[in-house]
């Protein structure tokens, strides 16, 4: 059945009316997102809006409080563990921190999903691993342990691992942070090629607006638990929303609050001063 759906043009991921809370904090308050097949979709938003959380919801690591997330026609939250694991084999996820296994070296990290899920011979695994490592430019670093890698290198190894099983979609959580301009260019190129050559669907979460825009087909802007704006890069640039303009151009002031929700600043300071005065009086 899932093969059939590949044929039609329905989006690969459909998120409808998503609600999600962390304790008291509302993170998603009625979010609708469509991720089209074979395209690169960027999800942007201020730090702490819940972009990582969104990726975890898609991967089935968290359950929505209300609303549905359909991945390739299957509702993620309703899947049994076995079905969920089957689905995850077709998803690659690049974690913000890399999440490499620290007790094995780079080569073994990339080989890990292959060893776990396939019965390939050692020589097959070796050639696959080397191909993936070559793609991220780290074939020479295969004997290093994760602790010997820089943050940017670790992220690239994690990317090589995420594409090891040739998934149908990849979720990139901040792939560009900590990359020098050259490797950033390489990564952009890589994401783009992977997408076009293999027909992958990609979701890129990133703060690097300029770079991300150059490769994405579609952009969602999130803030305060809502989708603020979405569309192709051209549409967004012409968007009348102040909000979108502020975010895309990186202005400090505007409708987007830079601060995490808090009570009044002056009041907060007064409270501390009050305490000091009390302390002084004793």
């Amino acid at each position: 059945m899932t093969y059939m759906s590949n044929v039609n043009d329905k989006p690969l991921i459909e998120i409808r009316d998503l609600h999600f809370k962390r304790g008291e904090q509302v993170i998603f308050d009625g979010v609708d997102i469509d991720i089209p097949r074979g395209k690169i979709t960027a999800i942007m938003g201020p730090s702490g809006t819940g972009k990582t959380t969104l990726l975890r919801l898609i991967g089935g690591q968290l359950r929505p409080d209300a609303g549905t997330i359909l991945v390739d026609g299957q509702e993620v939250a309703a899947l049994s563990t076995r079905e969920l694991y089957q689905l995850r084999k077709r998803m690659g996820m690049l974690f913000q921190s890399g999440a490499l296994l620290t007790d094995i070296n780079v080569y073994e990290n990339v080989a890990f999903p292959l060893r776990e899920h396939t019965e390939l011979s050692e020589s097959m695994i070796r050639s696959l691993v080397l191909v993936k490592l070559e793609a991220v430019g780290l074939r020479g670093a295969r004997h290093l342990m994760p602790s010997e890698l820089s943050g940017g290198m670790a992220r690239r190894v994690a990317l090589a691992r995420a594409i090891a099983l040739d998934p149908m979609m990849i979720l990139y959580d901040e792939p560009f942070t900590g990359q020098d301009p050259i490797s950033m260019g390489v990564l952009l190129e890589l994401i783009h090629t992977l997408n076009n050559a293999l027909g992958l669907t990609s979701i890129v979460v990133s703060h690097d607006v300029k770079e991300t825009i150059t490769i994405s087909d579609h952009i969602y802007l999130l803030s305060n638990g809502k989708v603020i704006a979405h569309g192709s890069p051209d549409e967004l640039e012409k968007s009348p929303s102040d909000w979108a303009q502020q975010f895309l151009q990186g202005l400090a002031d505007g409708p987007v609050p830079f601060h995490y929700a808090a009570n009044d600043y002056a009041e907060d300071l007064l409270v501390t001063m009050g305490k000091h005065m009390k302390g002084g009086a004793v």
């Binding site: 690591q61 694991y85 998803m91 921190s97 999440a99 490499l100 890990f112 999903p113 776990e116 691992r161």
Partner: peptide
Amino acid sequence: MKATEQLSGMEMMAV
């Protein structure tokens, strides 16, 4: 392993 998201990462690799 939990703090460095290795366990989460494994879950996402369907392990």
